[in-house]
């Protein structure tokens, strides 16, 4: 009996010890770690057309941000550098970065003062702004017309706060990702969906019957985010980004993904 009890105690003691040991989690320098592993773990989106979307054919994520992430990795670590992609959603991205699940976030993330308190941003890598997606027959043209109506957005994005600012009386429903939000729009759960116009243009181009209403009502560039305090990492990302802009890779990627997309002005984003 006693032996048996001891046998049962073992896993529990092991578990406790493991929990305690794990609590002594030290802060590490991301850049050193990345250099050492020759790998950068990128948090990217899998639900946004043009930026990062999972391909049904291959099961891989494809898009502008994915290509840029690969280019930056190669620029920073050399040709043998490896970019490991972790799929994230808008609402989980900051906690994942802060918990070290990922080294770097490139996930259609607007640089905001609130977020700057939590993470460290690189220079902007994409000039974005918020737009509104509506059905073709909708009369909505400006954000102010959304007052007293139901608008659909994605959890953890700046879109929600912006709607509250420009149309204080609008009711906002929030979803886990863009696929769910757009499905909800299609199901008539709201009159419009709002987020960055680049993402909306991607949705509209694939779904006849929906259009972008009016022009952007905010100016919100995207930044690459690293954990607070990782200044060395951010410096190297900025350097790599500048070099990619100088040697034309950046513009090539922009043209590859955004050329000919309905409702999208490529001149606005080229550098």
């Amino acid at each position: 009996m006693r032996k048996f009890k001891k046998f049962l105690l073992l896993p529990i003691i092991f578990f406790l010890a493991f929990t305690l040991a794990a609590c002594g989690n030290k802060k590490q320098n991301t850049y050193q770690k990345v250099k050492q592993d020759n790998t950068i773990v990128w948090g990217v989106r899998a639900d946004t057309r043009l930026f990062g979307l999972m391909s049904i054919k291959t099961g891989r994520v494809e898009g502008f941000e994915i290509d840029l992430a690969n280019a930056i990795t190669k620029q920073m670590l050399g040709e043998n550098g490896h970019a490991k992609l972790t799929k994230i959603t808008a609402n989980t991205r900051i906690p994942l970065l802060k918990n070290n699940n990922v080294d770097v976030l490139m996930a259609t993330m607007t640089i905001t003062p609130d977020r700057q308190k939590q993470v460290l941003f690189s220079k902007p890598y994409f000039k974005a702004g918020q737009g509104i997606l509506v059905p073709d027959n909708s009369k909505i043209k400006t954000v102010q017309q959304l007052n007293n109506k139901t608008v659909l957005a994605v959890k953890g994005t700046t879109a929600v706060a912006n709607v509250h600012k420009y149309a204080p009386k609008a009711k906002v429903l929030e979803y886990g990702d863009y696929g769910q939000a757009f499905s909800a729009l299609k199901a008539g759960q709201g009159v419009a969906m709002t987020t960055d116009s680049g993402l909306l243009a991607g949705i509209a181009s694939e779904n006849p019957g929906y259009k972008l209403a009016g022009s952007n009502f905010t100016n919100e560039p995207y930044g690459i985010a690293v954990n607070k305090g990782q200044t060395q990492m951010v410096k190297h990302i900025n350097k790599a980004l500048d070099e990619l802009k100088k040697n034309g890779t950046y513009n090539r990627l922009i043209r590859k993904w955004f050329k000919g997309v309905k409702g999208f002005n490529i001149k606005e984003v080229e550098e």
């Binding site: 609402n91 906690p95 939590q118 429903l173």
Partner: peptide, 22 residues
Amino acid sequence: AFVAGFDLMYQGDIVAFSSFQT
């Protein structure tokens, strides 16, 4: 929480991602 039903979990998500204290 998956269908914007304003229940405890949905509200928790929103608080978590606006306070960043997950």
